[in-house]
Design a protein around this nucleic acid. Structure first.
Length: 273
DNA sequence: AGCAGCCTGTCA
DNA sequence: TGACAGGCTGCT
């Protein structure tokens, strides 16, 4: 489900509840695709480690553990972290970790998420090294450098996590609308001015969303169990046929890279040549 | 570049 | 019943 603002909302609400606690015991389901390097390897690696810090890169949560090890959590589409004294009365809980003062559960109905244990910074770096810079901190110059050499439609570039980390379908659509750029516009055809406008628009949209706890389109909740409200501020996303807040034209929907794409045909006209 | 595949739940 | 969903990988 979650993109950068939702994942950051989880990080902010989860960190104080689990920081400096030792993972006493781990139980997990037998889903090798979800639990890396393997269900047993993950449980064995985590057990006995202290959680010393919680960071985020794009949509990836990175927990630092004692002994220079790491625990990463990618929520996929429906991943959810729950802190509770006992196992919640809900299905699809694939991991339960007993900490000093509480328990941490991972729930994920669609199982598109991924939990992984890395035994050293070098192992972690193999993953994070393939990811682009975080979308909240990338400079205009770096953003332009990474986008301008590509010919694909700009929306597909924004969704590509090796170019930029953290932007998903909602914020790509919202950021492009705010910047007045067509999702179909080729990356290489955008001027430096347009590109810096887009970079700033993405940050603006995601920071605003973060301030509102993220977007809850379906059932996102943070680690305090609270939904976000940024969906009420969406300008184009899932507003097909409704009026553009800027010009009143009807919002259109198309498909790009297999993903639904919402835009205003008037404000986001494609420039050719 | 484009699409099937991974999964389940929900809505029309 | 079928279409669709906020992500990503791996195949052609």
């Amino acid at each position: 489900m979650p993109e950068l603002p939702e994942v950051e909302s989880v990080r902010i609400t989860l960190e104080p509840q689990i920081i400096d606690q030792v993972i006493k015991h781990v139980e997990c389901a037998d889903y090798p695709r979800l639990l890396k390097p393997s269900p047993r390897g993950l449980a064995g690696g985590l057990t006995g480690k202290k959680i010393t810090k919680m960071n985020r890169l794009g949509k990836l949560l990175i927990l630092s553990l004692s002994g220079n090890a790491f625990f990463t959590i990618h929520l996929g589409m429906t991943g959810q972290l729950i802190v509770n004294a006992q196992k919640p009365d809900a299905g699809h809980i694939h991991l339960a970790a007993r900490l000093d003062n509480t328990m941490l559960f991972y729930r994920d109905p669609r199982r598109f998420g991924r939990l992984a244990y890395y035994e050293s910074p070098l192992e972690l770096e193999k993953i994070t090294g393939k990811m682009g810079p975080d979308a909240l901190s990338i400079s205009d110059k770096e953003f332009a450098r990474r986008v301008r050499q590509r010919h694909a439609p700009i929306k597909l570039l924004l969704l590509n996590q090796s170019i930029l980390s953290g932007v998903g379908n909602i914020y790509a659509d919202e950021g492009l609308h705010l910047a007045g750029i067509s999702p179909l516009q080729e990356g290489s055809s955008l001027t430096p001015g347009k590109l810096s406008r887009l970079n700033q628009a993405l940050k603006q949209v995601m920071l605003k969303s973060l301030a509102l706890g993220g977007s809850t389109v379906k059932n996102f909740v943070d680690a305090a169990g609270r939904p976000g409200t940024f969906q009420e501020e969406h300008r184009v996303y899932q507003r097909t046929g409704k009026e553009c807040p800027d010009c009143g034209e009807r919002i259109e929907k198309t498909v790009l890279g297999g993903r639904s794409t919402h835009y205003c045909p008037a404000c986001q006209r494609r420039k050719v040549g």
